[in-house]
Design a protein around this nucleic acid. Structure first.
Lengths: 339, 339
DNA sequence: TTGTAGGCGTTATCAC
DNA sequence: GTGATAACGCCTACAA
């Protein structure tokens, strides 16, 4: 069943080295013999054994992508970007979640033990994330997404969360004339939420304001919980110059729908803005003002950096910072175009 | 740098076979020497070379998943299910899209040539899909998703689209008393759309009705295009007992929003139902009546079947048919619970 | 229980 | 331009 290079050689009546040459550097071999070999290859349906090949070449042309979760549009866009770029560079992409299931048999652990992969891109979005420990004595080339662990020792691609959140808050306070902003974030340990919350407080202070005692909430980034929260609080939040800054679009959408269900008009009675600019932002009525985070681009750059390091392990570590961009739509009561 | 089994052997002062035994069948080796070997392994940070290993064992413990696209929640749920199950079974998962980029360097082609993968699950959702040609003389174990190419020769997992669409149509005509149904599908070549459209026509006939000349549309499964279509036609569609059956939730959501924007009330003036039961269905106001397609389960079963075949290449081919389930919410004017 | 030796299928290094 | 032959790192009879 398994036809090897030797079979081809025999059929073509050449040595295995010649067959190997035909496959890899077809130019340095006489065209007549090459034709003979190629016929034999076709006839036998020969395909080189990838393991033997990898054993010699010490590479598989497979790279990995490890995300906290595979659920939701945010992550799927990263996968898409990464997958596309990987294939463009001649690599295949393995994906895995670092969260669900027993961590001890996540892709990362498997990789650390014995690896067919040439490198990995790992996203670390929780302060408490265990993956950091795994990365400490990691052999393979890797790049870290969304967060830096130790910037001098590895490549990374991060989103300038602060920039995006500052832009949004200033838009709210300056352009829309907001005077009270309620912040609805993800988990308190989530690095993105932390950065956005800090920017929220800073801009508030910049305008001589501060968050009231009940103005900051931590949820789970889900529509449903935000909708439920909205149903409970939306009437007390409502008011001229009042606005909700949700840390992602799903939650913003939930709050908009809750407000609408409660008989409020968005943005007239309450402004609501999101973050990420996923499809939900455009599918919410009114469409959400939000901050566009270039997710697919993040995947693209991750793979880009990773493959560069694979190609040259000695190169200096680099960090790519992606700038999110304010997208003004209709949920905040302003149509001023700010970028 | 690359520490091999020989280094461990030397340090532990045993032969390489003993080291190998410690790694693979630790029980058959004296516990004292085993301890020595394990110490050496730890000290050296030894990790077996996966290529050499694969060369002997002829397996990589990596399986592939090829989807038409990586974009959108539908596919990401499949990835999630597949990824989870794969890891449970001790495999890692490579994903790839068969669509974007030059087809000739898609994962499938790469695999056909030389493969590190132990098997692949491939989703074929367009009649015109080229992947079918690639599959014809495919060496590796593979399972086909969503569509059968030649049922006797390979495993497959399919969704009983017809069942779901029949249930929906009967619900509309029987339980909700609909008298006119507009069908908004995906591309005409899309196998799911074809099945759903057939069911649509059949149930119409069952009730002595038929599709009017302007009652069937083919779009692209996107919210935006459906919204645009809705804006143009929603007033003419409106009426008691009138309803739109969209072939996915995104389009249904777009039509609901268009109807709302046009001042119509859903479902009072126009019923709208979707398909798939993705998150959008719950994030639309009113929440969509739809058909729940077990996407994650499809991924799970795909990997399940694939791994079974890898384990036993001789086993009879099996087909798993997943039944979608009617989910009645508020967009169709009925709250009757039907399953 | 342990060691020796052969082979897995390639590619690379030499001769010729 | 082509052919032996030695790695590559591991597993597994088989022998001791």
């Amino acid at each position: 069943m398994p036809v090897s290079i030797a079979d081809v050689a025999k059929l073509a009546r050449v040595s295995i080295s010649t067959v190997s040459r035909v496959i890899n550097r077809r130019n340095v071999v006489n065209s007549a013999t090459r034709a003979r070999v190629e016929t034999a290859i076709k006839k036998l349906g020969y395909q080189p054994n990838a393991f033997a090949r990898g054993l010699m070449l010490r590479k598989s042309e497979i790279v990995g992508l490890v995300l906290p979760d595979l659920h939701g549009e945010f992550y799927s866009e990263i996968i898409r970007g990464a997958s596309t770029r990987a294939r463009e560079l001649g690599y295949n992409l393995v994906v895995s979640s670092s969260r669900d299931g027993d961590e001890s048999h996540s892709l990362l652990y498997a990789i650390r033990q014995r690896s067919l992969l040439d490198g990995v891109a790992v996203m670390v979005s929780e302060l408490t994330d265990r993956v950091q420990e795994v990365l400490v004595d990691f052999r393979l080339p890797f790049v870290v997404l969304d967060r830096e662990i130790d910037s001098t020792r590895h490549d990374s691609v991060v989103i300038d969360q602060r920039h995006g959140a500052l832009a949004m808050m200033r838009h709210l306070l300056h352009d829309c004339g907001a005077r009270r902003v309620i912040f609805v974030g993800g988990l308190e340990t989530n690095v993105d939420t932390i950065a956005r919350l800090a920017a929220y407080r800073d801009v508030l202070a910049e305008f001589g304001l501060h968050a009231g005692p009940n103005d900051v909430y931590h949820l789970d980034y889900q529509y449903e919980t935000a909708y439920a929260l909205g149903l409970r609080h939306v009437r007390e939040w409502a008011g001229a110059g009042h606005c909700v800054f949700a840390a992602n679009d799903e939650m913003a959408s939930g709050i908009v729908d809750a407000a609408t269900a409660a008989g409020l008009a968005v943005p007239r009675d309450l402004g609501v803005v999101g973050f990420d600019d996923t499809r939900v932002a455009r599918m919410t009525r009114p469409p959400l003002t939000t901050v566009r985070v270039p997710m697919a681009l993040m995947g693209v750059n991750a793979i880009e950096l990773l493959c560069q390091r694979i190609a040259d392990p000695q190169r200096a570590t680099t960090r790519i910072t992606l700038r999110p961009e304010l997208v003004v739509r209709e949920s905040c009561g302003s149509r001023a175009r700010i970028s």
